[in-house]
Amino acid sequence: MIVTRRRLIGTAAAGAGLIACPAVLRAQGAKVLRLSHQFPGGTLEQGDARDRICRRFGAEIEKRTGGSLTVQVYPGSSLMKTLAQFSALRKGALDMSLIPLSYAGGEVPEANLALMPALVTNYDQAAKWRTARVGEELAKTLADKGVIIVTWVWQSGAVASRVHPILLPADVKGVKIRGGGREMDLVFQASGGIVSTMPSSEMYIGMQTGALEAAVSASTSLISFRLDELTKNLTAGRGRSFWFILEPLMISKATFDALTPEQRQAVREVGQELEAFSFAAAKADDEEITKVYAARGAKIHDLTGEHIEKWREAARPTAWKDFAAKNARTAELLKLAEEVA
């Protein structure tokens, strides 16, 4: 090929332009992580708390890495169906997700520990998990399966009911109810409930059509999915609950391993720093839900320590026993979890 003076000058000018424009270089070299979740979208300051966690993570990651790593958030299962996300994380087909970990129980039985009835009953207890042995071992199990926990996000559960209030296991007898996880369903079934399985994003249509009469989910979900429009009685999750769920922000191990050391450090640091926000947001929603539902005319009920103990008595011979019997690892994890007071 003959290199003309004009071509030489043009090439040099283009190169000089790139050198003079570091923003262009960063944009060309930036790695974009796709983050999918099932919850309604919003902004950094408004909307579902879990969506805000994802957006705050993305904004801070971009800042910390000087734009070399960015995050694209896809809310409302707009990128991928809800129940496909965990498997996609494991395979490296999805970079990140914030998802109820119990949804992964079919693939990884140990994940059902994340929604074990009456095991975690308040936020102080939940906050201890990350640094306790149960948290370390659960994180190791997930990492071995190809998924890394970035932020430990815990949510207290409330019960929205179109019928009578649900305060005790006996109250679910004959009620069509959604529990959100296999272990919760075992308790409901043993108590005479008619269990319906569906992701939280489908609760509204279930209640609307009569397929559901009651639904248990995080306070945040019961606000975001507008079940206040259909509810007569709300059992609030403020202070304590028999239903606590781990909904972590997670990253595919394949994606994480492909990052630079500096990017991996930023992911770890930002993820851990977001835990304070996640706890504060969850507690705020536990209070907000009582206002939202009361404004719609629902009667508000709070659980007592005696109520929680009845749920624990119902869970031990059913959900806890079934989980521990799965394999040696599930038995070990349950034992470690019981040690967290």
Rank of each mutant, 00 (worst) to 15 (best):
K326F: 03
V195W: 04
I223V: 11
L303V: 11
K140G: 01
A158Y: 02
G271N: 06
R178T: 09
G157H: 12
T220D: 00
L167P: 03
A127I: 07
T231E: 02
A282H: 11
L167E: 08
V120W: 14
S102V: 14
R64N: 03
E229Q: 04
A12E: 06
E338F: 09
V3P: 00
L234C: 06
Q38R: 01
I308V: 13
S156M: 15
I300E: 05
G193R: 05
E338V: 06
T65M: 10
L234T: 09
L138E: 01
E110H: 04
L44Q: 10
L249P: 10
L94P: 00
A236F: 08
I223P: 04
G10D: 04
E107D: 15
I205H: 03
Q28I: 05
K283A: 14
A93Q: 11
I61M: 15
R329T: 12
Y123N: 12
L168E: 02
G29A: 13
G41F: 06
T65S: 10
T4S: 15
S161Q: 09
T235A: 11
A298E: 02
E136Y: 08
R64E: 15
G181L: 15
L167V: 06
A314G: 07
R90F: 07
T260L: 07
V159Y: 09
L168C: 00
E287G: 09
Q38C: 05
T65Y: 10
N112S: 11
A337L: 13
V120E: 09
Y204G: 02
K91L: 06
L227I: 03
G305E: 14
L101M: 13
M96E: 01
G105R: 11
R7G: 06
I99D: 10
R90V: 10
N122L: 10
A143E: 15
S217H: 09
R178P: 00
K145T: 07
G146R: 05
Q72N: 03
A328L: 13
E247P: 02
A93V: 02
Q72Y: 00
G174L: 03
A30Y: 06
K31S: 12
Y293W: 09
I149M: 07
T151V: 08
V187I: 13
P317A: 04
L25G: 04
I148Y: 13
G17P: 08
A132Y: 08
A158S: 15
R7F: 02
R34D: 09
D286W: 07
F244M: 15
D124H: 14
G206P: 02
G10I: 06
S278G: 12
A280W: 09
S68D: 14
V3G: 02
A20F: 07
G105D: 06
E269A: 15
M1H: 08
L18R: 00
K140N: 03
L234D: 05
P248I: 02
S219I: 01
V24L: 15
L333C: 09
W311D: 04
Y204P: 07
E202L: 14
L98T: 00
F242A: 08
T4V: 09
